[in-house]
Structures are given as structure tokens and as C-alpha cells.
Amino acid sequence: MHALAKLTTVETKLLLREPGSLVSVLIPLFFLIVFGASTPKNDTVLLPMGMAIAVGLIGLYLLPTTLAGYRERGILRRLSTTPVRPGYLLAVQLLLQLVLLAAATALQLTVAGGVLGIHLPARALPVVLVCALGTAAMFAVGLLIAALAPNGRAANGIGVLLYFPMAYLAGLIQPVAQMPANLARIGEFTPLGAFRAGLHQAWSGQAPDLLPLVLLAVYTVVISAVAARCFRWE
């Protein structure tokens, strides 16, 4: 227990020293402030976009880069020579990245609701449910990248390469209303797109559509199973 607490403390410090974590929090916030200033109060598009950007950046970029780097540097292997299992480090990292994402999301909601005066959904449950499933699906993709990438730099490259097409199809670069209809339709079937669509429904107060939720759950199960099979400790 002592080791786990120490590991969490040290990994937290490392995460805070990593410029990537700050970037993952600031980019979606910056996006929100720039576009939020001229947005009507009853907007239902902007916040789901910002929240999906944060999930995309952390899941596709920060998480796999960190994990693949730990393997590349032999840190997981070095840990397996001590009484502590290297799996603890992965668990602590996953937990911290979740906390970072929660902080980025909370910051966006606070700024949107408190400063910009943008409407927030009355019912929290659908939002929480979509967030949980969307985060799980995107973290699964991140774990798969970490499993397949030979090193930290490759993981970084794959993450960046995947981010832009996924973000475009999900309607994060251009709102879906302005996208070609067929691309927008395809986008709803991608993990990031299903996440944004689910959030958008929660924001509009519609009865939650089952399709994005089921899609996210299936993505999570299938992709994390593949990632677990492919993961190498060294």
C-alpha cells in the first residue's frame, strides 16, 4: 500500500512536469473561450466539441505516448525486478490520466457555465454515462496504440496521425452541420464521433439515442481486448 501511494505521488509529479498534460487541458479550453464568446447562450454544439477534443488529446496522444515511453525506457522491466508488479504503474497511469481528463472537463464546464453563461444540461446522468463510455472507448484506442507502437516517439506519431482524421470525422474541426452529410454520417460510427453525438443529444435534452452508447461500449470491449492481447512488457 505504501508503495502504491508513493508511486501515485511520484507519477502525479511527473504528469504535472510533462508539458503535454498542460497542453491537453489548455487546447480545449482555449477553443471553448475563442468560440464561446460569440455563441448564443442556448448553444448545444460547442461544449460537446470541447469535451471530445480533451478526450481525443489525452486518449490518443498523452496516454499512449507515456505508456509506450515507459516500456521503451525499460521502466516496466526494471519494476519487474522489484517486489512491485509493473502492472501497478500502468494502473496508476490510467487513473491519473482519467483524473487529468476529469479536471480538463470540469474546467471547461465551469468556464462555460460560470463565465460564458452557456447552457448546461439539466440532467447530469446522461452526460456522465456518455462521458464514461466515451472515455473508456478512447482510452482503449490509446492502450492499443501503446501496445502496438515500438517506442514512445512512434506512439506519439500514431496518436497525432489518428487524431486529425478522427477529430474531423467526429465534427471537432468543423461542426457537423457544416460537414458533407455522408462524412458526418460516417463520423457518427467512429468512437470520437459517437461520443460527441451522444453528448450533443444529452445537451439538447433529447431522449438518449441508444446507438452511440452501444457503439462506444462495443468499441471499448473489442479494442481493449485486442490491446491486452498485443501488449508487451518489454
Binding site: R17, E18, R73, I75, R77, R78, T81
Partner: peptide, 14 residues
């Protein structure tokens, strides 16, 4: 036992 492995590193910022 204590081990120093070949080609191991620590996190840059540790």
C-alpha cells in the same frame, strides 16, 4: 536481490 539492467532508463523528469 538488487538488479541493474542493461539499457534501462528512468523518466526524464524524475
Amino acid at each position: 536481490v538488487g538488479v541493474q539492467l542493461q539499457q534501462t532508463q528512468l523518466p526524464e523528469n524524475l
